[in-house]
C-alpha cells in the first residue's frame, strides 16, 4: 500500500514540470502572446505528430535515422568492447591504446565530421563513422575500467578449472565486468542518438535531422517540433529497451543504484 502510493506520488510529481511546461506553452499560444509562426500551439504540434507518425514518408526518414544509429552503435559496441578487453588483457595493447585514448577522448568528434565527409562521402558511411567515433570511447573506457577491476580470484578460479587465458577472458572477466560494460553501452546509445541527428542536420537528404533543417528553412515551425519530439521519445524508448535487456543480462548481479 505504502509503496504503491509512494510510486503514484513520484509519478505525479514527475509529471508536474512537464504538464507545467505544456500548460505555459498552451497559454502563450492561445492568448496570442507568442505568434504561431514562432510558437505553434501544443495541440497543433500534437496533431501534426500523430499525422506524421502514420505517414509512410515520415517513417522512412525515421527508418534511415535508426539504420545509421544502429549501424554506428553496433560497430562501436563491438570495437569498444574488443579494444577495452585487449587493453586489460595485454600490457602492450594497454600501453599503446591508453595514451591514444587520453588524447582522442576529449577531442570533439563532431569536428571530425568534415574529414569523414571528405573521405567517405556525403552518404551513410560518413554519418555512421561519426557515430562510431563518438560512441566508441565511453564503451571502450567502461570496458577497460570494468575488466581491470574484476576480482582476480574469479579469474584464478577459472584458470584453476582449466580455462585458457583467452577462455578465461571471454567466459569470466568479460561477464564479470558486464555491469560496467553495459553502463558504457547505455551512454554510447544516447550519444549515438544525439550524434546521428546532428550529422543529419549538418548535411543530409533524409533522416529526422534533415526534416528539422528542411522545416527551419521554410519556417514551418510546427514541423520543427515534430522531429525533436520524435528523437526524444525514441531516446526514451531505446533507453527503456536497453534497461530491460540489462536487467535480464545482469540477473545474477547484486542490485545497483542505477
Amino acid at each position: 500500500m505504502r509503496a504503491r502510493s509512494g510510486i503514484a506520488t513520484v509519478v505525479l510529481i514527475g509529471a508536474l514540470p512537464i504538464a507545467l511546461i505544456v500548460g505555459v506553452w498552451h497559454v502563450l499560444a492561445a492568448t496570442g502572446m507568442a505568434p504561431p509562426s514562432l510558437l505553434p500551439a501544443p495541440s497543433a504540434v500534437a496533431a501534426r505528430l500523430v499525422q506524421q507518425w502514420s505517414s509512410p514518408a515520415y517513417l522512412e526518414h525515421a527508418a534511415s535515422t535508426l539504420l545509421r544509429l544502429f549501424a554506428g552503435f553496433g560497430i562501436a559496441v563491438i570495437a569498444g568492447i574488443a579494444i577495452g578487453v585487449a587493453v586489460t588483457a595485454s600490457r602492450w595493447v594497454g600501453a599503446t591504446v591508453t595514451p591514444l585514448v587520453r588524447v582522442l577522448a576529449p577531442v570533439p568528434k563532431i569536428a571530425l565530421y568534415p574529414a569523414f565527409i571528405l573521405t567517405l562521402g556525403f552518404g551513410d558511411a560518413s554519418k555512421i563513422a561519426l557515430v562510431v567515433a563518438d560512441a566508441v570511447f565511453p564503451i571502450l573506457l567502461a570496458t577497460a575500467q570494468g575488466t581491470a577491476a574484476v576480482e582476480p580470484k574469479l579469474a584464478w578460479s577459472a584458470q584453476a578449472a582449466g580455462a585458457s587465458r583467452w577462455r578465461c577472458l571471454l567466459t569470466v572477466v568479460l561477464p564479470a565486468a558486464l555491469p560496467s560494460v553495459l553502463t558504457g553501452c547505455r551512454i554510447g546509445l544516447v550519444i549515438s542518438c544525439i550524434v546521428v541527428f546532428l550529422a543529419e542536420m549538418i548535411t543530409s537528404t533524409d533522416g529526422l535531422g534533415h526534416l528539422l533543417v528542411r522545416a527551419a528553412r521554410s519556417f514551418q515551425t510546427v514541423d520543427m517540433f515534430v522531429p525533436l519530439i520524435t528523437i526524444s521519445l525514441l531516446g526514451l524508448l531505446l533507453n527503456a529497451g536497453f534497461n530491460a535487456v540489462r536487467r535480464r543480462l545482469l540477473a545474477g548481479f547484486p542490485e545497483t543504484t542505477e
Binding site: 576480482e151 584458470q159 578449472a161 582449466g162 569470466v172 564479470a176 545482469l250
Partner: peptide, 21 residues
C-alpha cells in the same frame, strides 16, 4: 609455473561467478 586443474583453490571470499547459477 601457473594454475592447473590438479590444484583446486577455495577462497575465503568464495569468488563465485555472480552471473551463473
Amino acid at each position: 609455473t601457473g594454475p592447473s586443474p590438479d590444484r583446486g583453490p577455495v577462497f575465503q571470499e568464495f569468488a563465485l561467478f555472480p552471473w551463473k547459477t
